[in-house]
Design a protein around this nucleic acid. Sequence first.
DNA 1: TATAAAATATAGCAAAAGCTAACTAATTAC
DNA 2: GTAATTAGTTAGCTTTTGCTATATTTTATA
Lengths: 158, 158
Amino acid sequence: MNDYEQDNAPPTGDSSRDALPPVTQHARQYETVRNAHETELIEDYVELIGDLIRHRGEARATDLASRMGVRQATVSKMVRRLNELGLVKSQPYRSLFLTEAGQSMAENSRARHDIVLQFLRALGVRDSTARIDAEGMEHHVSDETLAIMQRFIEENAK
Amino acid sequence: MNDYEQDNAPPTGDSSRDALPPVTQHARQYETVRNAHETELIEDYVELIGDLIRHRGEARATDLASRMGVRQATVSKMVRRLNELGLVKSQPYRSLFLTEAGQSMAENSRARHDIVLQFLRALGVRDSTARIDAEGMEHHVSDETLAIMQRFIEENAK
DNA sequence: TATAAAATATAGCAAAAGCTAACTAATTAC
DNA sequence: GTAATTAGTTAGCTTTTGCTATATTTTATA
Ligand SMILES: [Mn+2]
Ligand SMILES: [Mn+2]
Ligand SMILES: [Mn+2]
Ligand SMILES: [Mn+2]
């Protein structure tokens, strides 16, 4: 199958309604999703640590575990990674702190998360559903789309 | 930190604007995302196989690899898994076919994908951006939100 | 203050999803 | 019809993200 055939007419009649994208562009779609999946859990952890500090005064591993819905061992391992990445500063058996880089990531993630959540609410999605959808969608929304969502919120809010 | 304290007043003044959700609900958010991530790659493969069959007449592993942006070995491994899951029927060195279950999953995924894509376009997102965002978002949109997106499309299309 | 409980850490296991390298089968070109 | 090219498979490696079980440390209680 050569490059010419690759992006050309389908063999059957009805099926050409929405053609396949060019191979390179198509691959880029999936690559973008894979890249998002590499960073999204880290962002969620950092964002949650920031939220816990803001709302509760401190971020403890056990609260991360219960809110994430995973075991403490899983959190422990992730915290080590966040340390290695320079996002979190922590001492053994003590609660967690964000580095400068961590705080900056937390703020970015929270801002993005809030926009997506408010957008869904403005669309008319029920709050509990909007929260669930936003938790996943936030990592797959481009800056372009985010800006449009923000405008939509402003136009449909009061 | 007990259950009472868990969902109560923050220690600092300004920070209570948007409170943390109850622990159980918060955990459910992340669990839903983790569940979506377990099935999303499978859905993307099945959907792509269906699209290739519809548009090109057959689905070959090499085309899956180039469109997914991964190596053939990766596709080979995934195809074995799709076989085990009863979604794909294939013989060594021959092109791929969907089972009944596979076709049904492909149709569902495509319908959902289309709605998300059209919704983004209706919002005003550029086509190439909309395609990228839709590829990731589609797996994190609830039925409730999807219905609202569909309504939005109908109201804003002609 | 000694002990019980809770929190944290570490070791080892598993599945998923990618990779490269080496091999085999099928198709195409000559 | 053979040789070269293309396509597909398999084995073995790596990283990520979960888990359980066990040890250690900190905190709370009697
Ligand atoms: Mn998230
Ligand atoms: Mn995702
Ligand atoms: Mn899709
Ligand atoms: Mn997708």
